Simulated scan of single mutants.
Amino acid sequence: MRKKPFIVDYLYKNSLDQTIELWLPIPDGLAHASLKPSQLHRLPTGENLGYFILHKNDTLHFQYTREWYTSEGETIPLSKEEEEYYLRDTILSPVNKETLDLARDITIGINSKREQAKAIFRYIVTNYKYKYPPKSRGVKSFLRFKNGDCAEFSFLFSSLCRSLGIPTRTLFGSWSFGKMNGHAWNEIYLEDEGWIAVDVSMANLRKHNILRFLYSDLRTMWWGKYFGKTEGQRVVFSRDSEIELMPAYGDSKGRSIAIEPLQINDRDFYWGQESLKGAAPYLQPAYVKIDTQNLLPSTSIDVENLLGTWKVKETGWRGFLAQSKKYLAVIALTTMGINYIYSNDYLEFLFKFSFVALFTCFVLRRERAFLFSIFLVIMTLSLLSTISELL
């Protein structure tokens, strides 16, 4: 396995008739950057927050490589300030009487911080449903509707763990394949282990919707294993929600109908026009400020204007196998369909051989390896039978 098997490519082009302000955590090991930040600030999370001013048609382009994600090895003791930061009360992940009472109910009779966090993990996985997009963001809404996406699962886990004094952070990033393939999960800090990964939403999907990732490029695990580890196929953009923006974010005085609001705790929130008490709800990977008072009436604001675009690509032999899967699936299904209409021994050989190669790619990439190993054996035997008939 290569040490750095992922290439991350981020692009933001200012296509509006105005100057845009943009905040973005600066990744380590940049291979390419088209612009330098106007200001750079050190965050409590340990990351450097870049502040950019983009004039009309300016383009910000980052490219860098990343290793497989792991939280292992980060056992440096937290300072008092860091501990307080990862126990703080926020809008999206509140720490209050309601969350404390719920956390205590979930962990009755459990004294170990690790086992308390694990009990909370199992409770959320069992009692909430995955839904994208959610009706409203934030723990208050999640507790009410009992459904949400990866961010809501992560916000609630942070909220309940923090209520019991367990330092917790919500990570925002992307899966290591595809375009704009965002994801959120958690890390908790345990004194004897350091930061460990917890992915509540993936555990929920694996427990309740086991076929969801059948043809995915993702190496999935048994749902219970998502407490303490992950499959590694993910990239981190920022290491918590509600990170204070520096220089200070000045909320727009008006609100533009060109940007449809999202709901945060049942309240309209205008992304790119306001902040959460000076903080971005989350950096995935950037947050912008658009002067809505100077927008032309015909201006249309899309996701690229609010977030930019990113794509992550696997490299090396794993990347080659991922690409091969796509072509092999097309060849296998096409030739199988043609053979169904016009039965032909050579077409039968081709589609079976394509399926054997396709299932081999899954096994080599360790994606549902047990299941696809069974498919591989069955199809290989069928292929050998076809070959014997051709000879």
Results as ranks from 00 to 15, higher is better:
M1T: 14
M202N: 13
F237G: 03
I108H: 11
F372S: 01
L214N: 08
A332W: 05
S241F: 10
N204K: 05
R42I: 13
V303P: 01
A33G: 05
A332Q: 03
L205M: 03
R255W: 02
K325A: 00
L24F: 03
I264M: 13
W271P: 01
K56I: 04
T292L: 00
D199W: 01
L22S: 02
R169K: 09
V356W: 06
S71A: 12
I7A: 14
L321Q: 08
V8G: 04
K146T: 12
R366N: 13
I259T: 11
G232R: 05
R267K: 15
D9L: 07
F269M: 12
L87H: 04
I166K: 03
G29S: 09
F227G: 11
E67H: 13
W317I: 15
M336R: 14
P261F: 02
L262G: 04
Q323V: 09
Y130E: 06
W310L: 13
K140G: 07
A31N: 14
R169T: 00
N147S: 15
G165D: 01
G138N: 08
E81R: 09
V8I: 11
L92H: 03
N265A: 05
W23K: 08
H183V: 08
D89A: 00
N305C: 10
K56Y: 00
K13N: 13
A369C: 03
D58P: 04
I210F: 11
Y287S: 09
G182E: 10
N204V: 08
R212V: 00
D291H: 09
L333W: 12
R234S: 12
P44N: 10
G50F: 05
K207N: 12
Y282W: 13
F269K: 13
W195A: 01
M1N: 14
K97P: 00
L171W: 02
S256E: 09
I188C: 08
L328V: 01
R114A: 11
A286K: 04
P261G: 05
Y128E: 11
E84P: 01
I264E: 02
R114K: 15
H55F: 09
S159W: 04
N305V: 00
R255V: 14
N339R: 03
H41R: 04
I331G: 02
W68M: 14
G272Q: 10
I188E: 09
W223A: 12
N344T: 05
R206E: 15
G173N: 06
R137Y: 15
E47H: 05
V139D: 02
Y270C: 05
L190F: 05
N204Q: 14
D291K: 10
V377F: 09
L211Q: 09
